[in-house]
Design a protein around this nucleic acid. Structure first.
Length: 456
DNA sequence: GTAGGGTTAG
């Protein structure tokens, strides 16, 4: 049977090409279509906009609008919703508002998807209060919230640190007859996991199963990750087993989670076996998988192969990210190759990556080879520091019995509003007790208490 | 057309 090429068919093939990251082929398909007498319609252009926003950036997506206008096709609500989503992906709240405004100017009425996307953007932009107002507006107007509205709301609350509110919203809605779908369970489980609420996570996981819905690979990976985060390695591995027994093809997500946990727990051999299995299956490894692999070689102290893999990843056209570089710099530091670490760090900085974690590793590395003065100079040169930066120094200074300097840093850490490991706090106080007078120690403790009240 | 999982350091 001969299939007549129609708009629908053309659009389906363009969507599929965009999904498989083949924008050029999608463009070529449009030209072929025109040659065969099939003109692109609004759906064709909307699909292309989504593709450009996802694979290039918002501007590339927006430029498609001009082509639409030239072709005499009017943008619709989907066009602008897609552009709002594109702006959101690039974390551009102004871009998202611009699209909403332009849409209204064109006389196109926003729908529930527009408001959902706006809400999502406000949350991603760190404006939970305004997102909440949009949610209220949705409830107050005639628009009925969709399942996605609830999911975006709960996800936004979780990601902005309001896990309790997210949970109580979830429960309140349930009392009013709302039946959450799997995605919402996954979102909430992920939120609980990030807040290290292991028992709540496991309870919700059970509740989901009891609700009659089957957890999917995302649920399993999230629950597993929660176990690892909360130091329940064995329980996490049990979940992995259950996942496999339920017939879920264990994908790159689950493998990377398991391997990272094994590496962190020092089970290098198991991690190695797990990775060998992953490679054997023949997945098309992405950059996160390469990072996990590179990390394994670093932990083995095999920097040569770590760098080989780094080159393989780049050769495949994968974009190495902050994680890749940080893992390598840490690997170099841990193997005592400070000069190479310094060179890689300089390169990373020149390339414009976020170097905070890499600097923290570098400072730790410098301390470990006894170059404290240089470590302190690097510390002072940093624009942004976090609690790891402080604790790397404090921890190593205590080991060197330089307690006064450690105490000074500890105080300035607390004054910057950052929490530090209890063990490091204790090490400083314990050290001061041995080396300083009781009055000095009490004075220091008082300063710490005051600082905590004032700055936490 | 919007929402969910994986990788780094003390």
């Amino acid at each position: 049977m001969l299939l007549r090429l129609s708009n629908k068919l053309l659009n389906i093939s363009i969507a599929s090409l965009c999904r498989s990251k083949q924008l050029e082929k999608a463009e070529a398909a449009i030209i072929d279509g025109i040659r065969l007498g099939v003109l692109p319609d609004v759906v064709t252009y909307n699909t292309l906009i989504i593709g450009y926003c996802r694979l290039v950036n918002f501007d590339a997506g927006y430029s498609v609008i001009h082509r639409m206008k030239e072709a005499g096709i009017a943008p619709d609500v989907v066009t602008y919703n897609s552009l709002m989503a594109g702006a959101t992906r690039q974390r551009s709240l102004p871009g998202c508002f611009d699209m909403l405004e332009e849409m209204l100017e064109m006389g196109i009425f926003p729908d529930i998807w527009s408001y959902n996307t706006l809400m999502n953007c406000l949350f991603k932009y760190g404006k939970p209060g305004e997102a909440y107002r949009v949610f209220h507006d949705i409830i107050l107007t005639d628009m009925s919230p969709s399942q996605a509205t609830i999911s975006i709301m709960i996800n936004g609350l979780c990601r902005n640190g309001y896990i309790r509110r997210a949970l109580s919203l979830f429960r309140n809605l349930q009392q009013h007859g709302y039946v959450p779908e799997l995605v919402t369970y996954n979102i909430l489980i992920n939120g609980l996991c990030k807040s290290k609420k292991w028992e709540d996570t496991m309870n919700l996981f059970e509740e989901l199963k009891e609700s009659g819905q089957a957890p999917n690979a995302i649920t399993y990976t999230t629950v597993m990750k929660c176990c690892f985060r909360c130091k329940h390695l064995e329980e996490g591995l049990e979940i992995f087993k259950e996942m496999k027994s339920k017939g879920y093809a264990h994908d790159l997500f689950s493998y990377c989670t398991v391997v990272a946990a094994l590496l962190k727990s020092g089970c290098i051999r198991d991690a190695n076996n797990c990775i060998a299995h992953m490679v054997k299956i023949g997945y098309d490894l992405d950059i996160v998988s390469y990072n996990t692999l590179i990390n394994l070689y670093c932990k083995l102290g095999d920097l040569e192969n770590a760098y080989n893999l780094f080159n393989v990843a780049e050769g495949k056209g994968l974009e190495c990210d902050t994680y890749t570089h940080t893992i390598l710099i840490d690997g170099l530091c841990k193997s005592g190759n400070i000069d190479a670490a310094q060179r890689h760090l300089n390169y990373m900085k020149e390339m414009g990556f976020n170097c905070l974690v890499a600097y923290n590793c570098f400072i730790d590395g410098l301390c470990k080879v006894g170059r404290f003065n240089y470590a302190l100079r690097v510390f002072h040169s940093m624009d942004v520091r976090d609690s790891f930066t402080y604790s790397s120094l404090i921890h190593n200074l205590c080991k060197e019995r330089r307690y006064r300097l450690a105490a000074e840093l500890l105080l300035s850490c607390i004054k910057s509003g950052m929490k530090i490991l209890k063990s490091d706090r204790r090490a400083v106080v314990k050290g001061l007790l041995v080396t300083c007078s009781k009055t000095d120690v009490n004075n220091f403790k008082l300063q710490m208490r005051t600082a905590k009240i004032l700055y936490y």
